[in-house]
Design a protein around this nucleic acid. Sequence first.
RNA 1: GCCGAGAUAUCCAAGCCUGGUAUGGAGCGGGCCUGCUAAGUCCGUGCAGUAAUGCUCGAGGGUUCGAAUCCCUCUCUCGGCGCCA
Length: 516
Amino acid sequence: MKFDIKKILELANVDYEKAWIESAKYLEKNGKKFKLINKGRPHPLYEFIENARAIMIQMGFEEIVLPMIIEASHVYREYGPEAPLILDRLFYLAGLPRPDIGISAEKEQMIRQIDSSIDLNELKKILREFKLGKIEADDLIESLVLRLKIKEENATKLVDSVFTEFKILKPIPTNLTLRSHTTALWFPVLSALQGKKELPIQLFHIGPKFRREQNLDKTHLYTSNTISCVIMHDEITLEDGMGITKNILEKFGYKDVKFEIKKATSKYYAPQMEFEVFIKHPITNNWLEIGDGGFYSPVSCAKFSIQFPVFNFGMGVERFLMIQEKEDDIRNLVYPYFYKDIIFSDQEIAEGICFENEPMTKVGKEIMNAIIQTLERHKDDMAPLEIVAWKGKIFGKKVEIMIWENEEGVKLLGPAAFNEIWINEGKILGLKPGAEKPQHGIYTGIRYIDSIAALVARKIEELNDQKELKFRIKMVKRPSEINLHINDSIRYFINSKNKKIDIRGPIFIGITCRIV
RNA sequence: GCCGAGAUAUCCAAGCCUGGUAUGGAGCGGGCCUGCUAAGUCCGUGCAGUAAUGCUCGAGGGUUCGAAUCCCUCUCUCGGCGCCA
């Protein structure tokens, strides 16, 4: 059932609780009306990640889960003096403080108005426990309902209109941050694993990182994914690391790889031990940076008590995807529903057009075909005349389907009856058979007559006690008049692009179905 | 962070400078005309109301007899520059 959004919002503004309770009427509880249809499709991002995981595991890396949240102090330990620059890009997590709520005389009166039976002492106790953290925010309403024995809507009212302290809360930042790069997590993790796990330690993780970008554009998102791996061993060289990196990229399908030692090394890497990796874009032939790696700085390691060399390499998942999918806007790639104009090709439009009604039974389909064939054979016969298109039994009833034209001196059918429905440059057109067709147009395979025959056949299937069913279609000017259905998203597309739907013409068809 | 452009009914737009009935097209619906073929003609089409009428141009406020239009605040969108470890 469609929601009446305007009505719902109006009511919700006046009385949220009432709106909430009444909204249940829009939803159905019982019955079997829906089955999943076959629309399954992976998101290219996760498809890529799935494939990458398999490659990393196969190469000998162990997958681990890294926390998303990290203390800001770790960043100082890893980056040293550079840290403040890094912190600028971080999302700090904040929380709402628990308010002190006293019950003034004024509040007492408001509470009495909502429900005079409320036990004020118990209420005070609940609020105190909430402040102390004994009751979680999620459970506050539930506690009010259960312990004060009041209705849920009244509990909501208490919070909404009496204890307005909840509404004016300002978030207070903590020293926790969302990870801005996976590396931030490797230090504490390797520190914890050191001594517990045999060397070499070979780990990888694929997951999101978060950066407070100033604005989002073609190449920047708040959230993007990184493939990150580390190798900790007492005997390993940068050359080894680069060789492994090259290997990984080869498995990903990229052979043209270029390494460059970074001139300005990040402080968590050792000097002259950080490199960037470029691959040649298969289409533009430009060198694109897709990742970097190197040895972690022994200073940073020491701050985490790490005693062995750590080689690290990381790549941006979205960067790869952009190459792979030939997409130059990262937003279209990851969040197409927000950013990408949904565009339907002529082919897709053609597929979105079907009969509004069509026969469901075998005999119904037979009737439809009989009508079409009869019309094809007799379309140029001169009126007046009446032709039997089909005779037979349907659902125990003997019926006879006649095609007729009474007017003298004209043909059985109007000239547009056999018009074909074509799609061209986003337009839906009904074109005369045999006429010149648009060069790149797509034929839907549907003629006016096919659609009409489908409708007639369906109506005959639905025939109840009527003795006679008469169809007369003269001039048409809309798809609905000839039983054509254009799916909503296609219609929206055509509409929003200001394209035409031009299904018109003189059809002049008469069909009568009689029970004999 | 700085600068610029924008938000109008189901969709696409016009109206804004210069305040005075919400304009056009598409789509949708209806009437008339009928043998018209990239297509005849007229009407309806934001919301509430039986009606008179009232309300509606992102939200809120202000100026004014009168605001889509002028002023202020806010929200969101798009673009450019900067930042992007």
